[in-house]
Amino acid sequence: MVRVLLTKLAALDPSPEKQNAFKMGPVDEPHWRFCFAREDSFLTTFSPTYRKDSSRYAFETSHSFILFQPLTSFGRHGLTEDTPASATNWKNPTSMRDKARVAFKENGCPYHIPEELPYPVVEHIVKPKKDDGTSCVRWWEPLEP
């Protein structure tokens, strides 16, 4: 469903150059970002199918939703460069990124943080039920009949 929604949204991109999200190269490459109206976004999905111990838990709603977070907002909050899991200051977080990672972990819903950078962000849009880095939901591929 995410693939269908994003494909339809990309087809409606008002950018005059039609440089929409799915014409920017293979989506499973580290450089790919969802782009709409010339705005790159980080996408996060939430669903009632995730349990409370998931970073994608939808907090008692019966609906699924996608958060489109403009990448420019990361810069405004000092999150310009991503960091691997090993660079996270778990005991005394000072950066916004580390504080978020620690908060999710302390609240019982840690998420997989890749060690190797850059990584394909597409693999983090729809998370597997067990988010330990051993699998990914390949939502961008058409479903087999």
Rank of each mutant, 00 (worst) to 15 (best):
R51L: 05
P120V: 11
F22Y: 06
K18C: 14
P70M: 11
Q19S: 15
E141Y: 11
I113M: 11
I66P: 02
P128L: 13
E106S: 09
A103L: 10
A85K: 11
T72Q: 11
A100M: 13
P14V: 05
W139R: 02
I113T: 00
G78A: 11
D82C: 10
T49D: 12
A21T: 09
K105W: 08
R138T: 07
R38Y: 15
V121A: 14
S64I: 08
V2N: 07
R51T: 05
E106H: 06
A21I: 01
N92L: 00
K99C: 10
R33Y: 15
S135E: 01
W90A: 14
T44M: 14
L6I: 00
A85Y: 07
L43G: 02
E144Q: 06
P145K: 10
W32F: 13
F74Y: 13
K91R: 01
T88P: 01
P114V: 08
M96R: 04
P14F: 01
T88N: 03
L71R: 14
P70K: 12
W140T: 05
V122E: 05
A58I: 01
K91F: 08
P142Q: 05
S15L: 07
E141R: 13
T61Q: 09
R33A: 11
K129F: 12
F34N: 05
T94A: 14
H124V: 00
Q19A: 15
V121L: 15
P120E: 03
E141H: 08
S15R: 07
K105L: 08
H77R: 02
K129R: 11
S15Y: 03
P16N: 12
G25F: 14
P118F: 12
K23M: 12
V2S: 13
P145R: 10
F46V: 02
V121T: 12
S54F: 02
R101K: 06
W139T: 04
H112T: 00
I125S: 02
D131N: 04
L117A: 01
D13R: 10
D13C: 15
F68P: 01
A11Q: 08
L5V: 13
S47Q: 03
E39F: 15
A10R: 03
P118N: 13
S62Y: 12
R33W: 13
P30V: 10
F42K: 14
G75T: 07
K91T: 05
T72Y: 15
R56G: 02
P26C: 14
V122W: 03
L79I: 10
E106R: 06
Q19R: 15
Q19T: 14
S95P: 04
T134I: 13
P93R: 00
G25L: 15
N89R: 01
P93H: 00
Y119L: 03
T134L: 07
E144D: 09
F46L: 01
R33D: 03
E60S: 14
L67R: 13
C109T: 06
W140C: 13
D53C: 04
